[in-house]
Amino acid sequence: MVSAPPITVERLTKRFGAVTAVDDLTFTVEPGRVTGFLGPNGSGKTTTLRMVTGLARPTAGRALVGGRPYADHPHPARLVGTSLEAAFHPGRSALNHLRVYAPQVGVDDRRCHELLELVGLAPYAKRRVGGFSLGMRQRLGLATALLGDPQVVILDEPANGLDPQGIVWMRSLLRAFAAEGRTVLVSSHVLGEVQHTVDDVVVIARGRLVHASPLGDLTRLAEPETFVRAADAGRLDALVAERGWHAEGEAGGVLLRGVTADEVGAGAFAAGVELRQLTDRVVDLENVFLRLTADQEVPR
């Protein structure tokens, strides 16, 4: 286990002229967990990550890695591996791209080869990056971030351009990092993309924090849905009407929103309605996410 430092964002604010891109944002990214940094496009995720990594200066507040600003660490790229927008000189080979940054990270050519092997680009080491697909660039960006075997990993939209196998691979890699005790922060504008990867979520909209919690707590914010089928549809409809449940007809039965399977079962038992099927629907976190981020649409 490594003892990785946390990332702490304290009242972070960034204004570009009249536009407030990041607004009084506070959250903590704990080591040993994967934290999903979520928000719609343009909500300030990348701007926040740029301030965390010292590329942009906050208008107010601060962002710290292990208690200090990124740039104050003697060799920041050894401690923090960052992949923001995957950018490369198109005329440089994949291997040379890594070799260019290797001296300051403090690693040798062997490590560069290792990384290309890890991300599956070893066969393309000598190829110029100009000919790479989006997925290959994304992998090379990840390899660059991981050069120094960093304790803190910050990835901006890492799933972009990856094929399904690539996404599964990325997921297991991030899970492994967290299991090793590293601090992992991953941004995404699609919750579904990281739902199976993250332990914690930090949701922002319009530069403001709207939710921060373990993923499980987010699940609890979701509206339950229960599918139910009765022997006598008429008696079920009467029950639904009596209880004032919100129902929608669906293939042979009804879908009830806002009611758990437990409540429906108890209600049917009390009313003597014979049920043929009673199913808990998988909670749709995407809806929770949309609701959370849409709440911010009202002008403040």
């Binding site: 010292g54 590329l55 920041p76 790229a77 923001l84 927008e85 000189h89 198109p90 940054y101």
Partner: peptide, 14 residues
């Protein structure tokens, strides 16, 4: 032009 300045400043913030 190729936006590599970001990565450059990540490894060398000074």
């Amino acid at each position: 032009r190729h936006r590599t300045i970001e990565q450059t400043l990540l490894v060398e913030p000074n």
